[in-house]
Every structure is written in C-alpha cells, then in structure tokens.
Design a protein around this nucleic acid. Structure first.
Lengths: 214, 214
DNA sequence: CCCTAAATACACGCATAAGGGTATTTTCAT
DNA sequence: ATGAAAATACCCTTATGCGTGTATTTAGGG
C-alpha cells in the first residue's frame, strides 16, 4: 500500500508547522510540499504530484477558492480539503462550487483531519459536523423553496406549451409542433398567465424556471 | 457511550435480514426497528426513536425519497442513509434534496456501511466514492456553466434594462423608470438580442437567469 | 351518472415587441 | 487627441402577444 502524498498551503507558519508535525508522524502519509501561499503550491504541482491538497481558505495572492478552482481545472485527480476559520453558508458554498472534497474548520482535531484525508484520498467527500449541518440546512431551505407548490399548478399540456415557449417558438410554431390550433395555444398561454398571476410570458418563464418546471 | 439506535426499511427481506445480522454483531449499534416499507418505519418513529435510518430508495408505497422528506420534516434529528441500486445523477440529487446524510450503493461492503453510520450519527455526511464522484461532476458541471463568460457580455445599462424586463415591465414603464426614451429601451433590447443570438426576450431571459446575471 | 377540470377551438381589437435602419452624444482608454 | 464602445434617440413596418369572451369535447372522480 503506497502512502498518501500530501501538500499543504497556509500562510500561517505556525499552523503549517503544526500540520507538518502531525502528518509526518503518520506512516501512511507522505508530506511532499509545504507552501506559504496558493500560487507556490499550484506551480509546484507537476513536481509534487500529490493525492491530496490541504489548503487554507484565506491566503494572500491566490486564495483557497481560486486555488481549488485551478487545481480542479488542471489536475482533477488531486483532491482538495480546505481548512477554514469560517463556517458560514457563503464560504462553504463557494468552496464546494470550486470543487473541494472536504471542508474542515480550523478547530479540527487530529483524528478528524486524518479521517478526512483518508476519505478524500479514495475519492469520497468529508465535511465536519458543523459544515454538514450548514449544507443540510441550505439544501433543505432550497428544497423548501422548490417544494412549495402552492396550488396554481400547471397541467401537463400547459407545461408542454410552456416548454416550447421557452424555446423561443411562437404560437404558430407551437401549434404546428403539438398538432393543435394556434387558438388553443393562445388559450393555454392565457390560462397559465391567469393561474400564476403573471402579466407576461417573461414572468411566467421566471416562475417556471424558479420551480424547475421546464 | 450510548449505542447508536438504528432502524431499517427495505422491501427485500433477504437484504433486510442481512443488514440486521451485520448490525446486530456490532456492540456499538442497536437495531430498534426493521420494516418492509417506508410507511411502517415512519409510523413507528415515535416509538423507535432512532439516531439513524437506513432506507432503501425503491420501495412500494412510500419510496425512499418521500420517506426521507417526511422524516426530515417531522424528525430532523434523525439522520437518513439511503441504500440504492442507482448511481445516476438524478437519483442522487433527488435524495440529497430530500435530506439524506448518506448515500450508499447496494454493493457496499460491511466496513463502509459501518463507517457511514458512524459518520452520519455525528451529524456528518457520507457518500461512497462513486457517489462522491457524481456529485463532484455535477457541481463542476454546474460551475462550468456559470463560469463561462464567453464574450457577448451585456453592458451595465443593458442589464439594468433586462432586470426591469424580467420584472414584467414594458418598454414604456422601463423608459420612465430609467429616465430615458422608449426608443432607447427598444435599442437596448435589440442590441441584447443580437449579442446573445436570441430571437425573443424569452430566450434572453433564460440566458440571463442561467448565468445569474439578474 | 353527473359534475368538474382540462383540453380543445374561435373572434375581435388593441398594445407592444421585433426587425430593419440611421444618427448623435458621452465615456473611456490608448 | 483620437477612436472605439456604449448609451442615447428616432423612424417605419410587420408580426405577435395580450385581453376578453364564448363554446365544445374529453377524461376522471365521486
């Protein structure tokens, strides 16, 4: 079994030293790079060839978010764990979108850090409990928004029409496509506008896109 | 240290028995309920009071997705792990939106299952490697879509106009709101349509919403 | 069997967007 | 200071959507 190759970027030397000391003690881990900023870590990737990158989120120059994006763009096989002081939804989302496989808070204990490394090196994801909770809340929130159907439900047929409207077809084209008369298409549009309290298709389209109806 | 209370729902008795046998062997786990469908599991929650629910995704009656939603709605402290045969993006997203803390494929081995239980019981999340990869791909995809700047950038002013268009204002109203002539509004619309290769505002609006421009 | 919701269809008129131009002024970077 | 891009403005014509109203047929639940 080969050892997991790890690189670390953090502009706080104390933390960098602490991490290094901890990681050096592990016999299944090999530290192949320590950097005090993101750019240096990135530039050294062809040489360091790590399995896992441990990156601070706030660093001078290239920050953890940009660094992660660039790593995932050019070396998608390198799994990134971010070490952050922030546990707010915005930071978490940003990093997840950037492509991290793990998100740890800086108060992480040794065992959890090693757990996280073990998880992500195999391609899984690791989020600490606080972060998991935030993610769950965000998703539940989002889902709440989506899940609220509050009646003015559009019918199947109406959605068909709306889908074609969204494809920039005009009523005549839609009529032809659905083998119905142009009048019927007009009626469907009118009914949809009425049901959803919208004045124009623009509002209707927003309504539909927000609810992932089309 | 108290033992983790677990309930399981699966309509395949063999799998249910197998899981039960495995879980019974663990001294830090207590199986407090086995059900052959989701409804039974849900109805028994006030009595079983589990820490973790292990649910099959495809069950007759209430399926895993609905079950998870209901569990998270009424008992948010119960963490759900889904056991699924499907590793496609759609199923995974559905379950995440429903609020699962873990997603395992049915080819899961004993160790991974126990790992997953240990993770989620502490409020963290666990996704097997295949699932993690899918999630990463989805997020990266989504991000790619957002990150694409590709030229036909709209100007500040054009975006202002578009924002008002999206609020279902007509050209006259927009003109009044921005203290410009209706002709100018028309010009902005035309220029935007041309730049983005759209025929109607509908297409333009989709363009803008997809890129979070407004 | 009845009732309702949905899907179908049509008429008329007004309002408005789209499509084609052209042109002036402002702003900003080279 | 000059040139390009952006914002401003106007004209004309055609196409299309919106508003309001009515009506028939079909499908499904009670």
């Amino acid at each position: 079994m080969t050892r997991t190759r790890i690189v670390v970027a953090d502009d706080h030397h104390i933390l960098l030293d602490g991490l290094n000391a901890l990681l050096q003690k592990q016999k299944d881990i090999e530290v192949v790079g320590l950097y005090d900023n993101g750019q240096k870590l990135f530039d050294d990737l062809p040489n360091s060839k790590p399995d896992v990158a441990l990156v601070d989120i706030s660093m001078p120059g290239m920050n953890g978010c940009e660094l992660t994006q660039k790593i995932k763009e050019f070396y998608p096989k390198v799994y990134v764990i971010t070490l952050s002081m922030f546990d707010d939804a915005t930071h978490i989302m940003e990093m997840i979108e950037a492509g991290v496989s793990g998100y740890l808070l800086k108060n992480v204990n040794d065992k959890e850090l090693l757990d996280a490394i073990n998880m992500v090196k195999d391609g899984r994801m690791y989020f600490s409990a606080e972060v998991s909770e935030k993610i769950t809340t965000m998703i539940v929130h989002q889902q709440k928004k989506l899940a609220q159907p509050e009646e003015p439900k559009l019918t199947e047929r109406e959605l068909e029409v709306l889908t074609l409207v969204a494809q920039e077809m005009n009523n005549a084209e839609i009529a032809k496509a659905l083998f119905i008369s142009e009048r019927t298409v007009e009626t469907h549009r009118k009914n949809m506008l009425r049901k959803t309290n919208n004045k124009t298709i623009v509002g209707l389209l927003k309504y539909a896109l927000e609810r992932n109806l089309i």
